[in-house]
Design a binder for these strands. Structure first.
Lengths: 308, 308
DNA sequence: CGCCACCGGTAAATATATTCTACCGGTCCA
DNA sequence: TGGACCGGTAGAATATATTTACCGGTGGCG
């Protein structure tokens, strides 16, 4: 591999500013796009002009226009950026052969994925999984993950492949002892008299669920606030509160009687939980295997036996 | 022009480190090449790895080797850099149509170029010149200039076009009054008794010149030090010192008697003064016109009339 | 085996570069 | 002619990159 004269490169970071400024033919719009202030862009452009010894923009009226030099330079910068993005994607594709990076919320990870991963790995020993669990208020990050298990209310868009897994269904759960205290024939409104656990990023879930039963949610007393459903469920399991689940995360606990549903009301919300990946990865063997296997597992044991 | 997702770009500055580290398969060698310390490169690589969520190198023995991901990424980065360098060159080519950037030392500019530029511009009104004069200890900078008027002892290499103009000839000059004091039949060694002006970056010029006449240069007394020949010549003109010229920079002053040569000894050194430009620019109309015109002007008025 | 000369990674301090704030003068339009 | 834009500037604040001084590990050599 021969040497390359890296000294000839313009200040790379500033090229972003040049690219955006050229595209918009406006310093301020470029600044908005890059979430910077306009002097920052102005300065970046000046840096490149100085490094190249060339003028890239000139004033025209109260705006700017690219000079001939700026127009000559732009396509190269643009192509270079596109090449780099392709390179990042190539590296990601390469890394798929080594490990499949799966991202999800902590609750979905603990109470759904974790239960299935061992069997998946037994069924597909050639695939290495790297799970990362993300904090609340997280969106799928296609740079650091190949596949995400997330909830989307609407289609995530054309860039992504989306495989729905199960409903986003809201229903309260608690320990049998707590349910006994609530009463065998309890109504939705009766729950307001018992300790509810609220996930602070999902306050609206309780509101929505009560409203769908015609009850106004007034959490003025007797409630707990936690930051993730996983913790809320621990509180429910230990008999300290009633939690509102938003998916099939306690199916085992319900089946084995550790948790019960104090009232039967259940609200299916729009959208679904599902697996997301960038469209280019959709046909990748590891990705496809993972998505198909998990979809089958969500559908039920009989579907799974067909895949495996 | 459509938008591009600049957020997907890895930390651009750090890519230099990645490129060099990959090429050398060594952090320390990369650091040497980029004139940084090895932790800087190490950190740059880690930044990219973090941004991409991918491992680019792994330890092997006491060195490193690229991972499959690193090898996948490299060609894109490499090509992107080459594209950017091409872009810079394209911008330079573009700017040639607007102005020809000429760089030289302050002395050559004042005492040789400046005398010729007005006539050149009259002969070639379509060409716009941008002259920049550089401090001593400067090398031709093909980023900020298209053509340079410089002295080279040896061929400047295959990347450049080189058009020799005139000899690097050393000979002392001074005012007629000073010459009278030195004496009409003075020998080289007699100059040692008179005020010599030394250019501090060119001390060896006096040494070399005296040595070529068999005299040891001992500047123990009675000398001045300045930083450029242009100043030295001013001192000579005002009768305060004897200066050592290294080219045809006082031809007019000699012809018109403002300066004289106190002794006839003249030393022609290896190498020449000449015009340099990047090879790609050699055939550019502006560059070619400039170089040809100046070469003719250096050769003499009769050559010039042929060109013009 | 044990030493020494390498390698690369780490953490804190430092240096540098970038960005922001607050301002300016100019242009356009009402 | 004023007000709402634009981009440029300078200094301060901030973020980032780099260095310094260290570490533990590896491999060659006596």
């Amino acid at each position: 591999m021969r040497k390359i004269d890296l000294r000839k490169l313009p200040p790379l970071k500033s090229l972003k500013g040049f690219e955006a400024a050229t595209r918009h033919q406006s310093i301020r719009e470029a600044a908005d796009e890059l979430c910077l202030t306009h002097p920052a862009i102005s300065h970046q452009v000046q840096l490149i002009e100085e490094a190249l010894g060339v003028t890239l923009f000139e004033q025209k009226g109260r705006g700017i226009v690219s000079t001939a030099e700026g127009r000559a330079l732009y396509p190269y910068v643009r192509s270079a950026f596109e090449l780099l993005i392709e390179g990042v994607e190539a590296a990601h594709r390469q890394s798929l052969d080594k490990q499949l990076r799966v991202q999800t919320y902590v609750t979905a990870s603990i109470r759904w994925l974790a239960k299935r991963v061992p069997q998946f790995l037994r069924d597909n020993p050639q695939i290495k999984l790297a799970l990362s669990t993300c904090a609340v208020e997280w969106e799928f990050d296609d740079i650091h993950a190949d596949v995400g298990l997330v909830y989307y209310e609407a289609d995530p868009g054309p860039k992504y492949h989306w495989a729905p897994l199960f409903e986003y269904a809201l229903y309260p759960v608690c320990s049998p002892a707590m349910a006994a205290r609530v009463g065998p024939q309890a109504q939705v409104r009766d729950l307001l008299d018992h300790p509810l656990v609220i996930i602070h990023t999902e306050v609206r879930n309780w509101e929505t669920w009560f409203a769908s039963a015609g009850v106004t949610f007034d959490p003025s007393s007797n409630y707990l606030v936690v930051d993730t459903l996983a913790v809320a469920l621990e509180l429910a399991l230990s008999g300290q509160a009633i939690a509102l689940v938003n998916g099939p995360f306690v199916d085992d606990d319900l089946a084995e009687g550790r948790l019960v549903r104090p009232v039967p009301h259940r609200l299916v919300c729009p959208g679904e939980w599902g697996l997301i990946c960038r469209k280019e990865l959709q046909e990748n063997p590891s990705v496809k295997t993972f998505i198909d296997w998990m979809a089958a597992s969500a559908a039920g044991p009989e579907a799974l036996s067909q895949v495996a």
